[in-house]
């Protein structure tokens, strides 16, 4: 049965995004939430972000500075999180 996984991207942004991409390898549903800060503009994060979008994964954020992601306030994210089987804060 497919699992639903939320990855909460906090400190280790590059590794969190790389891990998110890896998690879809067994066909689980993986959504990404970039929390509390702007995604650093590095070559690594840009590459992973591009791949996440190519894979049509949901990328949401509570930080309005993050362009190209769906903005949701904390309350809305908190309402969604209990719907996942695993919540991985990185």
């Amino acid at each position: 049965m497919q699992k639903k996984i939320a990855v909460l991207v906090r400190d280790g942004q590059g590794e969190a995004l790389r891990m998110s991409l890896g998690l879809i390898l067994v066909d689980d549903l993986v959504d990404v939430y970039v929390l509390d800060r702007k995604l650093q503009a590095t070559e690594e994060t840009a590459l992973h972000l591009e791949t996440l979008k190519e894979m049509e994964m949901q990328i949401r954020t509570n930080c309005r500075d993050n362009e190209g992601m769906e903005y949701l306030p904390n309350e809305e994210i908190a309402r969604k999180l209990p719907q996942y089987d695993h919540i991985l804060a990185y």
């Binding site: 991409l21 890896g22 998690l23 879809i24 390898l25």
Partner: peptide, 13 residues
């Protein structure tokens, strides 16, 4: 191993 093993862990745990 690789991130595949992490995916398998999350799938099975």
């Amino acid at each position: 191993a690789s991130q595949l093993n992490n995916a398998m862990m999350n799938h099975n745990a």
